[in-house]
Design a protein around this nucleic acid. Structure first.
Length: 150
DNA sequence: GCCAACGTTGGC
DNA sequence: GCCAACGTTGGC
């Protein structure tokens, strides 16, 4: 089983939305590295749900991968937020996975406190300039962040 | 294949 | 809103 982190701006899609919807397609991702990580995901993988571009930014909940990667249909919809006219329907460029709500953390584990712990220095999330919206996390770090919320 | 210009992300 | 970082695009 692998562990991941999913970023979302809460005014776009928050952990509360995730809880209400129970499951959602993680579509709209238009970054090759993030897409490749989604292609590696398998049903049952765990994920941290992270709120970005908000104060404070941080981990707010957990999710489970409930469907392996499948074509992201929003790329072919001119009315979607991220249409990609260059993507060929016979060989779609962008994929998404389905996520299912797991838990809401009892408090936000902020980026700031994660940065302050030396144990997290190799976490891609805390390395400067990180703009990846989907990234892998070690089980160790995943467990530790959940523990910090308690 | 290089690289400048440009657009987007995300913390603050 | 600012700005640094960095991915993408496109001309050559």
């Amino acid at each position: 089983m692998q562990y991941w982190l999913f970023k979302s701006e809460p005014n776009c899609y928050s952990i509360d939305d995730m809880k209400r919807d129970k499951k959602t397609l993680w579509d709209g991702v238009r970054n090759y590295q993030a897409r490749n990580f989604m292609r590696e995901m398998r049903v049952g993988d765990r994920g941290l749900f992270y709120h970005s571009s908000t104060i404070p930014a941080g981990v707010v909940g957990t999710v489970v991968v409930s469907k392996n990667a499948l074509p992201d249909l929003t790329q072919f919809d001119p009315k979607s937020d991220h249409p990609d006219p260059k993507s060929n329907p016979a060989d779609p460029r962008w994929d998404c996975v389905e996520l299912t709500f797991d838990t809401m953390l009892s408090r936000t584990v902020t980026l700031n406190e994660i940065k302050q712990k030396k144990a997290f220095s190799h976490l891609q999330l805390v390395q400067k300039g990180n703009r990846l919206s989907v990234l892998p996390v070690d089980k160790k770090h995943y467990d530790q962040i959940i523990k910090m919320a308690q």
